[in-house]
Write a protein that binds this DNA or RNA. Sequence first.
DNA 1: GTTGAGCGTT
Length: 260
Amino acid sequence: MSHFGRSGPPDITDTYSLLVLNITFRTTADDLFPLFDKYGKVVDIFIPRDRRTGDSRGFAFVRYKYADEAQKAVERLDGRVVDGREITVQFAKYGPNAERIHKGRIIEPVPRSRYRSRSRSPRRRHRDDHYRDRDYRKRSRSRSVERYERERYRGRDRDSRRRSRTYSVSPEYSKDRGRGRYDDERRSRSRSVDSASPVRHSPSPRRSPSPAKDSPLRGESPGRRSRDGRSPTPRSASPQGRRAASYSQSPRNSDVDLCS
DNA sequence: GTTGAGCGTT
């Protein structure tokens, strides 16, 4: 029965925002309110959730009315075990509108220079991607939107090893993540191979096309093969892989962010 | 049913 985050940001001009990290995915504002309210006047609690799934993203924003109370809450609740997990409480730095925050207090709208000062950290949410790939593909949105999202993800997720459609990585490579030094050593050896192309999949001498005409799998058309496995324009190339678009025609497209 | 670095909604 909490109206936190129901009607947008109330009055954040004189509030002190705290960022609560490492909370469980099931922790709600109601669970955090009694904890934080003990140390001061909590004016609002907001837990960002996924727009598609509605699940919590694992962190929350708690806004206090006074700075000293917020400071006390940080010192008191930082490291506290909530719901079996150690949370991290700290002052929020960035707001939705890039507000200038001084020790947690919003002073004034800030020039972008401050905003760009911080390098954007890549956040990987494979879970969301999973849901998006399954739930959003059926909606058949406009392609411009798809491209937009793709570019957005490229900018945020560019730290990731995989670029768009990478080849299957070997399990050994997967284990290497986390070892920086050894990775360097390994890279030194393989440097002699090539240093220009990050990925070099030597085109193994493909055996004869296929003398066996009676291949059990005849679902592949020759046109698809000639593309080296890459089909940048699956627009109307292979209708076999795509179901009828008429299925995705949903009368309600409210999912799109068109409605403001 | 899953997950775990991070900075937010009308």
